[in-house]
């Protein structure tokens, strides 16, 4: 019980460090920006969310939004936010101080991981809520799009962000380890950028793309029109979780045994 309390205060401290930093603002605006752009597009061309045979404005709107983020922006956001959060420690010479506090080193690793995951979740949640808000706005501006009449597909969106979040976990663990390893944050970000870019090309037909962690968010998101492949755990989520477990473990071991200069 005591250790749970201590761990939660560690997490609180880690969270406090990130407040009002780049990582913080990136997470908030990262979730807003794409729905805003898609909103502006749909506002001037409402016909693209209207289907002549079957009026499903929410699905179309969701689809546009997910398509815009899944292949490139979402993995890139995860790469950036992970590196930025770890960079706070490098920049403040902080490892040497916090690792002389009387806790196992792994607990610091986990506490920070919790904060990174928190931000990834927050962005997903903001993303979904801004989709809803902008959808309702369009419904007001262009009543013919039927946004107001049709029910908001909460359940599907929840399933969708859960899948997307799970698919991002592999990237989080790998980038976290890289960011700890390299003091210069250009290295993990550059690497993550390159691998994300490679992934966004691979989705067009490399046969092993399913095993490329940076391409996994892209692989789970297009299911939106098929009722978001009603299952939450498909092959891709499991692969992502596998990477998360593997690199998370490697990270803890590396963090616990490395020398700090």
């Amino acid at each position: 019980m005591k250790s749970i309390k201590l761990f939660s205060s560690l997490v609180a401290a880690e969270y406090l460090k990130t407040r009002k930093t780049w990582a913080f603002w990136l997470s908030i605006f990262g979730g807003l920006i794409i729905p805003l752009i898609v909103f502006l597009v749909v506002r001037s061309h409402p016909e693209i969310v209207q289907n002549r045979m079957n009026s499903m404005p929410w699905y179309m709107f969701l689809k546009f939004n997910w398509q815009s983020v899944a292949t490139f922006l979402l993995p890139l956001y995860v790469v950036l936010v992970t590196s930025l959060i770890v960079q706070i420690e490098h920049r403040s010479n902080a490892f040497k101080k916090f690792l002389t506090l009387p806790h196992p080193r792994g607990s610091f690793y986990l506490a920070k991981l919790v904060v990174i995951l928190y931000y990834v979740i927050i962005t997903h949640v903001i993303f979904v809520f801004s989709i809803v808000v902008f959808g309702l706005l369009i419904g007001n501006i262009h009543p013919e799009t039927m946004f107001l009449e049709k029910a908001i597909p909460w359940e599907m969106m929840l399933r969708q962000i859960t899948k997307s979040f799970l698919a991002s976990l592999g990237i989080v663990a790998i980038q976290y380890l890289l960011s700890i390893r390299f003091k210069n944050f250009i290295k993990p970000i550059g690497l993550g950028f390159a691998t994300t870019l490679a992934g966004s090309v691979m989705v067009f037909g490399w046969e092993y793309v399913d095993y490329w962690p940076w391409a996994l968010p892209a692989k789970v998101s297009p299911g939106i029109m098929q009722g978001a492949s009603s299952q939450i755990f498909t092959m891709h989520e499991w692969i992502s979780l596998g990477y998360f477990g593997l690199f998370g473990l490697l990270g803890i071991l590396y963090f616990s045994y490395r020398n700090i200069k």
Partner: peptide, 30 residues
Amino acid sequence: LRRSAYMIEEPTLYKHLTGRQNIELICKSG
């Protein structure tokens, strides 16, 4: 470690936080 405290080279400092928040962090973490 519980009985010792360290300050190694330049102090650990989160520049975007206030002095008090910096201490608060160590307090929470420890």
